[in-house]
Design a protein around this nucleic acid. Structure first.
Lengths: 142, 142
DNA sequence: ATCGGAATTGGAATAATTCTTGATATTGTT
DNA sequence: AACAATATCAAGAATTATTCCAATTCCGAT
């Protein structure tokens, strides 16, 4: 009873393979870190978090793994301004709110059934494949 | 009869000063290029376009000028993925549509009166200062 | 005309990411 | 199980956009 996309291993919660991508120890660990760590870490932050499980991991490998996971639609890459890329295991369609005061990034879900392109004057013939919504502001605590 | 924000020079269409920023020859030229050139050029593209009017302009100056213009709200900086920053003299609130096939970037106006934050589940207390909408797709010609 | 602060220049420095290469590991095939 | 083919990994070099820095140069106010 192996599902089409995912094959489970006996020893771990993370499958051996996800949507055609072989889940090596490095990829598993990096994916696990992103699942447990929802604050949109950078490649370097992932690298540091992974180091104690995989002491001789290299940063290049972190980049390779993140790239592979992104390419296979397993995680998302998030860019804000010209800062380092951040990575995110939340695959729901969502935007990001950047708290200018703390630097924190919060996921922002779209209210169900919202079609943003309805509110935009798109160029004629435009077919939208992807929409990215990023908000900047602060969180007032009063 | 000098207006508060803008003082005109006799020889050019571009004011000597805009919202408190002294418009030097370099800043004028760079601003002029962005007004005439609505395809969101990069700093380097601006540099090349400005070279014949200002032969000994340096790229660092282009970056300085663009930064000054952005800081004073005279132009906008636009980032897409991890590509070079692009610059844009269109100050209307708008998003960007990236044609994946041609690489072109089209401005996308918001339909009047649209409040996008109404369709987002923002974190409690969030005060939105800025919203950025970027679409990716292609333009079908049939 | 002079003085001081701002702007410009050119080159060096930085930082994130990508590339390269050789070593290892994994898979499919016999 | 052995082998070849392929994929992955590690380490460091290379790249690219951007920023920094120090030395002029420019401009406006006195």
């Amino acid at each position: 009873m192996t599902s089409r996309a995912v094959r489970m291993t006996h020893s771990s919660e993370i499958p051996e393979e996800i949507s055609g991508l072989r889940m090596t120890r490095q990829r598993q660990e990096i994916y696990r870190i992103l699942i447990e760590n929802r604050d949109h870490p950078t490649a370097n932050e992932v690298f540091m978090l992974a180091k104690d499980a995989l002491p001789n991991l290299s940063l290049a490998t972190v980049y390779n793994c993140l790239e592979a996971l992104v390419q296979h639609g397993i995680i998302r890459q998030v860019n804000f301004e010209r800062e380092s890329s951040r990575y995110c295991a939340n695959l729901r369609e969502h935007g990001h709110f950047h708290d200018a005061a703390t630097g924190e990034i919060h996921d922002v879900d779209f209210k169900p059934g919202t079609d943003f392109s309805k509110f935009l004057n798109l160029p004629p013939g435009a077919v939208v494949e992807d929409i990215e919504i990023t908000l900047r502001g602060k969180i007032s605590t009063n």
